[in-house]
Design a protein around this nucleic acid. Structure first.
Lengths: 107, 107
DNA sequence: TTGATAATTCGATAAACTTCAAAATAAGCT
DNA sequence: AGCTTATTTTGAAGTTTATCGAATTATCAA
């Protein structure tokens, strides 16, 4: 699947977002991450794999442990897409008009 | 489900992202949206419903037509969460360090 | 009311997702 | 080699998702 779908899908799960938030505080190994959740290690490993596939985290081995850290490249790409789609959109637009309005803002 | 999960899940599908991109060009009714995709109207209606539930689009009726437009409120919220998680993350970090270092940044 | 058009909802199906327990892999220790 | 710890992979169950065609709802025009 395309990276962009993988990224947003990964972000669509509360457990995975929690994992990212914890990694924001500092790198953690798989066991430390799993310890913070009520679900099993196997499930966490699965979530970590999805985050990795999406490019949102990186892993490096340190002895017996896999150390996870945030990675920002695809995140930036996703942000840019969001900006491009929602740019120039007025959060409180005039109602009752359809199609593109030719009248601009009062200036 | 929480809004944030709904938003990212909604964005995790390529068809729905395409719909948002088209709406960026200007408001469209359901038929116009469906006409641009190889899948059926029922499926598009389903996708539009998810986008609506997520708060990414709004609908208004105009005669027999339902007119969809982008809505930015939850989008901004999602952006802020992304920023908060990925802030201060170096896209090209030093390697080989684990755990949270007790030594802070110089300053 | 009847007929036409626009869009959604319903019922079904196949694929994908989340989770678990158990088995397998990897690294370190003796 | 054997034993322990850390993590992933596998196989299965239950849930959610994407899609379709058919039926339904809503609006407009006579």
């Amino acid at each position: 699947m395309e990276t962009r779908s993988l990224v947003f899908k990964a972000l669509g799960d509360a457990t995975r977002r929690d994992i990212l938030e914890r990694l924001q505080q500092g790198d953690l190994n798989a066991g430390e991450i799993a310890a913070g959740f009520p679900i099993g290690k196997a499930s966490i490993s699965h979530h970590l794999n999805l985050l990795k596939q999406a490019g949102l985290v990186r892993v490096r081995r340190q002895g017996q442990q896999q150390i996870y850290s945030l990675h920002t490249t695809v995140f930036r790409e996703a942000m840019q897409w969001l900006m491009s789609v929602f740019q120039d959109q007025n959060p409180n637009p005039a109602k009752g008009r359809a199609k593109s309005s030719t009248s601009g803002q009062p200036g």
